[in-house]
């Protein structure tokens, strides 16, 4: 299993992540899509394997629930397969599937409304060695006795307090490293809206997590 944490940590800023966006679809990817359209499920299996971790991660960060993320991620890929004929290649397959997954998750969250039930994934052991995170639980922080597990719970609870659009921009930009423009395409809005939502969401999170920030 790869380490999405390190991959995402390498792209914390505005650079596009992993080929998403308006870049032309790699030839190999289109070949897989065409084969899948002809009924070659091994080709589609290949496509799923390429993007399963990122799609799962996005949905998980939005729901803070592993089981829901599992179901929604699978359903997103199934739905993408059923709608494969409508994929024209104008954007990357990843962006296209991403959009399906995001819309599906937003619809799910609307139905769930405020009935949040967190089922958090475990933290990778490398988190304990991340200097930024270690600094957060050092003697200088107001809640110095807080461990990483508590930080994780408080962070997820704070994320769940955000509205879905604000949670989504934080997930896509600050957690997964997508650019404002890519996020705008996924959310079907302009980059300015993305920036303003991001600013507001960060302010909200700061207020919720003030005890854990210097």
């Amino acid at each position: 299993m790869t380490e999405p944490a390190s991959r995402e940590a390498a792209n914390p800023s505005d650079e596009p992540a992993n080929g998403a966006g308006d870049t032309p679809v790699p030839v190999e990817e289109m070949v897989l899509v065409k084969r899948a359209l002809k009924g070659d499920l091994s080709a589609y299996d290949d496509l799923v394997r390429r993007y399963q971790e990122r799609i799962y991660a996005t949905i998980y960060h939005m729901t803070s629930n592993h089981e829901d993320a599992n179901d929604l991620a699978q359903e997103a890929f199934i739905k993408a397969f059923q709608a494969l004929r409508s994929f024209k290649g104008g954007s990357s397959f990843y962006t296209w599937v991403y959009r399906i997954a995001v819309n599906k998750t937003l619809n799910f969250l609307k139905q769930r409304k405020n009935k949040t039930h967190m089922s958090l994934d475990d933290l990778d052991f490398n988190a304990e060695h991340d200097p930024d995170l270690v600094a957060l639980i050092s003697d200088k922080t107001p809640r110095r006795e807080a461990g990483l597990a508590e930080l994780q719970e408080k962070l997820n609870a704070a994320m769940q307090k955000l509205s879905e659009p604000h949670r989504l921009v934080v997930t896509l930009h600050d957690v997964q490293g997508l650019s404002h423009e890519e996020i705008a395409k996924i959310m079907d809005c302009n980059a300015g809206t993305v920036r303003s939502r991001l600013f507001y969401a960060r302010q909200q999170l700061q207020a919720y997590l003030s005890d854990y920030l210097q």
């Binding site: 999405p4 944490a5 995402e8 940590a9 914390p12 998980y60 960060h61 958090l120 994934d121 475990d122 933290l123 990778d124 490398n126 988190a127 991340d130 930024d132 995170l133 957060l136 990483l148 930080l151 994780q152 962070l155 994320m159 934080v170 997930t171 600050d174 957690v175 999170l205 997590l209 854990y212 920030l213």
Partner: peptide, 9 residues
């Protein structure tokens, strides 16, 4: 702090 989310597996 948000980096913590990337370590969730």
């Amino acid at each position: 702090l948000l980096k913590l989310k990337r370590y969730e597996q």
